[in-house]
Design a protein around this nucleic acid. Sequence first.
DNA 1: TCTGGGGTCCTATGACTC
DNA 2: TCTGGAGTCATAGGACCC
Length: 370
Amino acid sequence: MGTDVRPEDRPKRVIAHLDCDAFYASVELLRRPDLRDKAVIVAHDGPRSVVTTASYAARRYGVGSAMPLSRAKRLCPHAILLPPDFESYRRVSRALWEIVGGRLGRLQHLGLDEAYADLTGVEKPVRVLRELVEQVRAETGITVSVGLGPSRLIAKICSDLGKPAGFVAMGREEAAQRFAGHSPKLLPGIGPKSVERLREMGIETIGQLQATPEERLTERFGARHGRDLLRRAHFHDSSEVETSRVLKSRSNERTFDEDVTSLTQLEEILRRLAQGLCEGLQRREKRGRTIAIKVRLDDWTTVTRARTVDAHTNDTALVTDVALELLRAYAPPRPVRLLGVRLASFEDEEGAKAGSGGRAPPPDQLALPL
DNA sequence: TCTGGGGTCCTATGACTC
DNA sequence: TCTGGAGTCATAGGACCC
């Protein structure tokens, strides 16, 4: 390896995480200034909908993202409900990241409203970021919170800390100390399931996780995950800011307002889902080999079935036929609440995996999350 | 409280090949 | 000819993220 550089000889990394505050709701409020300071919930209005985003006024009532809409309405009955308009969100997002990218260079996008940037070697990064946040606010009306640290992990946690319009910077040791009393849920990658498993082991804080012998964790979580949990607890993270990501799969799925029992009806829905999926892939000239269906039953069990075909395709007739065969072979034994179809193993995956040494990714790859 | 849609990544397992 | 291990691929399930 010719790239071996001792850690002490490497420049100290400076990673920023930029996160738009209540992005979808903020875009809505730009269009509807009369709703400023009002409780606004962005969500489809259906019996099984969940909240996409809530304005800060609605959050004061306990409404939050991913909460069932029925519950949100109970918590905040006077909230104004707006249907999501992703076309507008994408437009504002593009404009915003163009400004940021113009100053910081290439970004790693995570969805429409957040991104990482590597500012290692940049002079006066704090000043650069402060000016940038102000420029974004002036030109788009969107406020951005910034987290700054030696890794993506710390930058991400910091950007959440000062929301809205926050600006927080922290080193690794400081983070390890400061968050020792917090729940492991604070750490990205540790969700409700891992929190529960840790709790069963008597580990309820990041500090307790830090003090847990690695063997105990690897016993419970497997070698890789266990080691990773411990590294995270100590806020070690050497992952790079990845500025080019390639689409790995694309799917189209629908949860029904009421469960569906009839196979004929399910087949009809699956045809429409496959058609929508293939039309999108045809526009992007993407073809895949693995066709999969997803079925969620009324008791919330989720089943997937997949088949890999010989040649890459985005042909509606072929994808539909295979998806229908998979559905008939499975023959859902209970009422179905969700049906979906997915295409994966795209034809240019291998070439793209070669990374920066290979050809430049097509323009739409960089814009993938947008 | 009762759980969307669109993704990524990881793990386990079995089939297959060398 | 039989066997075992390693590597790879396909499949299924699940956790997690925005």
